[in-house]
Design a protein around this nucleic acid. Sequence first.
RNA 1: GCGAGGGUGGCCGAGCUUGGACAAAGGCGGCGGACUUAAGAUCCGCUCCCGUAGGGGUCCGUGGGUUCGAAUCCCUCCCCUCGCACCA
Length: 904
Amino acid sequence: MESLRAEPTEGRCTFLSMYDDGYDHAAVERRWQEAWDDASAYRTPDDVEDPTYVLGMYPYPSGQLHMGHVRNYTITDAYARYRRMCGDDVLHPMGWDAFGLPAENAAKERDTSPRDWTFDCIETMKRQMESMGFGYDWEREITTCTPEYYKWNQWLFLRFLREGLAERRDAEVNWCPECETVLADEQVEGDDERCWRCETPVERRELEQWFLSITEYADELVDAIDGLEGWPDSVRQMQRNWIGRQTGTRLEFDVSGAGEEYGGVEAFTTRVDTIFGATFFALAPDHPITEDLTETDESVQAFLEHEADPEGDEPNGVETDLTATNPVTGEELPVFVADFVLSDVGTGALMGVPGHDTRDHVFAEKMGIDVRPVIAPAPDGGEAEPPDVSEEAYTEDGVLVNSGEYSGLESAEARERLTEDVDVADYHTQYRLRDWGISRQRYWGTPIPIVHCEACGAVPVPEGELPVELPEFINTTGNPLDAAEEWKQTACPDCGADAERETDTMDTFVDSSWYFLRYVSPDLGDAPFDLGRANDWMPVDQYVGGIEHAVMHLLYSRFVTKTLADHEGLEHREPFENLLAQGMVQLDGEKMSKSKGNVVSPQAIVSEYGADTARLFMMQAAQPERDFDWSEQGVQSAYRFLSRLKELVGAYAGGGIETTAETDSIAEYVEDETGAAVVVATEEYDGLVFNTAVREAQSLVSTLRQYREYAAVHEETFERALSVSIRLLAPVTPHVCEELWETLGEDGFVVDADWPDSDADRETAEKRRRLVENTREDVRQIVDVAGIDDPERIDIVVTPEWKHEALNVAIDSDAPNVIGALMQRDEIKRHGEAAAAYGQNLQESREALQRTLDPDTELDALESAAWLIEREFDADVRVLAAEDAPDDVREKAEPSRPAIDIVE
RNA sequence: GCGAGGGUGGCCGAGCUUGGACAAAGGCGGCGGACUUAAGAUCCGCUCCCGUAGGGGUCCGUGGGUUCGAAUCCCUCCCCUCGCACCA
């Protein structure tokens, strides 16, 4: 017992090989990983001109690769390998999103430092990546928590500052009490506003924060989405929503009352055409006027303290003693303070039009405010009839009614006229997008390179003094940088007086907003990236990652790219040309998660079945953008396939398969199938549809196994087909294909092999396949229905040429009756009765007629597939040209439908 | 509510862009057979219903429509997933 258990891996493989089941994946994979490494197979030299840039979103080094990573990186790896075999130079790098809160938490728990913990995790994950066989250029590896990297975050920040794109201001921020940090809006999740990391309810705090002015680029960010044709619609739509651009009119209402004159108060509306229907005016609970009112107006105060509920669905409000003057009608409107008016939307004040806005309608009903229709549905002719708005608002555009001189105008036109006519009105565009608050009160991030001086204020650290390095980690409850007294004390760069460093660090999305540029020149010491090379190599040709980054990371990256284009000479305004949002790996329809305990570990799969199996299963399970279920059966099926393939190639190379130099119809069939596989798989790889591509290769392998079983194989054909199969699979299962490439006696790595080529035409190939499949199906049906137990001979008779001609004539002809047209042709006419009958058929199904393969190709396809039928029914099969067949059989044949005669 | 994507045979999943050869590829599962002492692996076939020569019926979420013809195009509704949402 003891000796058997000494080497579990070996033991297992011996067991497997005894039964011809499986192969020693561990040995194969180790061997080729080392060989690739020795040969620097994935190195991209700096002097290549414009490599195909394939990138997976770099991971946060949490310590373990999970299935999501494996899927993500298998997709990029397979694509990178495919492009490389097609002859492209390929840039396929990997790095680490190494800053972030979990490292701090882990450090506290384990009494270590975030740095040590992070580098441990990186080492582990890097090893796991290597064991998966991902072909990265590790010489371009980047790690964002190193001073060599984050120096350039600081540099970037200073450039933003210089260009007026960074500023410090007081802001109410989302504060997570658990993480003791500020969160970006994007990091607050759900209706109940919880922290994205720890799910603690988020609080609000006023703090001085650094902001990057992403809103300056809001228009370009939203407009350029239209040009991102290589991106999924879902992501494009999410970005549009997030930016939330709205165009409308900003106009002033004079507000006064209770002895105060507030003058013009701005309100924003997208529906200025409804202004004649405005019957109230409303202010946000934290609008300056509201704040002023709380001093004097007890009912407002009471409302704010007891009733206002901005989170609730009900619109609540209280009437004030103020009135607002409608700038168009001069009407005096009652002013309310209402909790559904949000200070960060528009101007925090709005005109209420209950007749044409659902929410205003609900509020008006509740408060007893007038409801007045001023927009009517466009009439079909005649007068516009005001809609009944007593129960429900009419929110569509239409024609203005009850609107003085504007009555009769269409909504769109009225909006223009009103905005132009009214002095205190202006076109205005507003956005949902806010500036990007990047300050974080944490240790494990990029220090913001600022010094606070009592005399000079916030002073940027001079570029020459970068990086501002992080001090040693101090285990404390608050911000460790605040506790690092020695580090904090410094001199003001301007006046030299004693000053303190900024103790906030940057949001880690800063790191990831430009990392794809760093790969271009990862060791460059005097700039974040080599400009010339970036101009040549960017944009990323294929970016792959999870949908969870659809907004933040991708939007920030686009923003930063645009600022670099405007200020640093980058010649690209968009970082990612094609984007693939990969689907989830699930278990029983549920997302894998530690808390649910339904996690399948990639490591376990790799040690049991090998990386190639894991990769193959993932890629064949579904299209990359779809979710799919992990399935043990699927994994086993993938594993068995690889074993069979290995056996087949091994048998061939070892002389275990009988060969012949004579070519025949079977060889022709295999040749055609090989060509078809190449054409189809290539197209599918191009479109990243790996599941279909892989299936094509698998079915070719299965054809080869049938061939080998059935006859002595034509050496050249068989070998080429094997070589093609291996190459078609190599992007997905690189190790085993490398091994088989060697077994087959090919030179060099399959990684560097030429992608197979074929002049086959996909459409013809598919027609041939269909013809063969349908014919086989027909034979089965006949045998079955006619109760033929043991057919002795099967004749398959191809349609005579004249019927093909007749079909083509019928398709081309626009004569009312096709029989006439047919009979004008002697070669058809001379078939007399038969021609007339077939013509009748054609006439009846005139519209449904389809072009078919020509008779020679048909004959050829059937002849080469005859062995499949022979094998299946164990009978002689003759494929006959029409002229070689008896009349009564031949007559039944039609194009794409050969006549079948079975002799018992 | 708005927006995006999706609903295919026992299950998974192609196909719908460019309607026709679609009872609808492939895989898995199930059934039968070959091989085997046996199991496993492998191979062959079957796997919606009826049918003694390739036929017929029903079918691709629901209900309509366009068409000679619809899984494929259009509309209605239902359901699922995701994103946004008291956005003025």
